[in-house]
């Protein structure tokens, strides 16, 4: 059995909707009762549409947000009960690469400083050794030493994403949450960054949680995949199994919506009706029942429980046998 490095159990993240006088009048259930485990050295792909809670879940897993309920254990330590000092130590292990390379770097800081600051805050080394460490990571991600004193605006999108990755790598973390790291990039640059992520993983045995809405990128990079819809994890399976044999109707819809890259193939498509319901007022029963082409009576009344298709493939749907 592989080593489990992170375990999340029944994680809930509710954001209050404040009415007049700041009183909570309801909740946006961004993440609702999600459990998952991450194993050392794997890439876990998290897919779903905008607003399904995948980014929020990513943030909760490294405690950038404190969950409303549930527990997250990193190598056995509870992230939500840890105190300030313990958290600072844990943060060395838990890093993040953000989607937008343009807004996730401080425009007034030279990129060299962006990197050394991380070490300074963690109290690692002295000025010279920090410089040397930063330069070493800088070259690792394919940037040149002369870029070290430049400002973020002097770089292209792909190069900025390299800087974002360098910032995450400099502390030698165990887990990196990659929140749509290639969505803002052209295909040619996208493949450069994906290859770089794979190289770093091979070299350092990193674990990635890779959040994306692009199924073809997920198919390429992930080992296991979780599909989210409206705050719920609806299906989880190894990547080849999920693409070959999806069990949840929503996963089937997502896969059929991806355009084919072969002009000779005309795809049979399940087109979804309507839009995502509001997470402040999710449908009763199965969250997908309002748009599901196969919805039955029971789907509107009862929340579906977990069905294990095999050891590694689970699905939350009434209609799977």
């Amino acid at each position: 059995m592989r080593e489990e490095i992170l375990r999340a159990e029944h994680v809930k993240m509710y954001f209050p909707i404040r009415g007049a006088l700041g009183k909570a009048v309801g909740h946006v259930k961004a993440v609702d009762d999600v459990s998952l485990s991450l194993y050392k050295g794997e890439t876990y792909g998290l897919v779903g549409e905008t607003g399904c809670g995948k980014s929020t879940l990513g943030r909760v897993l490294i405690r950038l947000l404190k969950a409303t309920g549930g527990t997250v254990l990193y190598k056995g330590e509870d992230l939500f009960t840890a105190n300030e000092k313990e958290l600072r130590r844990l943060r060395r292990e838990l890093q993040m690469v953000f989607q937008d390379p343009y807004t996730s770097l401080n425009p007034r800081m030279r990129v060299g400083e962006v990197l050394t600051e991380v070490l300074k805050i963690q109290g690692i080394g002295d000025k010279d050794s920090r410089m040397a460490d930063a330069l070493a990571v800088f070259e690792k991600v394919g940037l040149l030493p002369e870029h070290f004193y430049r400002f973020p605006h002097e770089f292209s999108g792909g190069q900025r994403q390299r800087i974002g990755l360098a910032r995450a790598l400099i502390l030698n973390p165990g887990l990196i949450i990659c929140d749509e790291p290639v969505s803002a990039l052209d295909v040619s640059v996208q493949s450069q960054i994906i290859n770089l992520l794979l190289d770093m993983q091979e070299e350092r045995g990193l674990t990635y949680l890779f959040i994306s809405h692009d199924m073809s990128v997920i198919r390429y990079i992930a080992d296991r995949v979780g599909v989210m819809y409206l705050g719920h994890l609806v299906e989880e399976a190894p990547v080849d199994e999920l693409f070959a044999d999806p069990a949840h109707p929503y996963t089937k819809v997502l896969l059929s919506a991806v355009p084919s890259d072969n002009p000779h193939v005309k795809k049979e498509r399940v087109i979804l009706e309507g839009d995502l319901p509001s997470p402040a007022d999710p449908p009763a029963g199965c969250v997908f029942c309002t748009r599901c082409p196969y919805a039955k009576e029971i789907c509107r009344e009862k929340k579906p429980g977990r069905t294990d298709i095999n050891e590694t493939h689970r699905v939350y749907c009434h209609l799977t046998k």
């Binding site: 292209s156 792909g158 190069q159 295909v187 040619s188 640059v189 996208q190 493949s191 450069q192 994906i194 290859n195 794979l198 199924m215 073809s216 990128v217 198919r219 390429y220 693409f243 991806v258 084919s260 890259d261 072969n262």
Partner: peptide, 24 residues
């Protein structure tokens, strides 16, 4: 050629590395 090879494919074998067009 480069653009088409850089697309992560939805069907067929998955190579260990994606093709990339060097530079920008």
């Amino acid at each position: 050629k480069g653009l088409i090879q850089s697309i992560p494919r939805m069907a067929g074998e998955r190579a260990r590395r994606l093709y990339m067009i060097p530079g920008t």
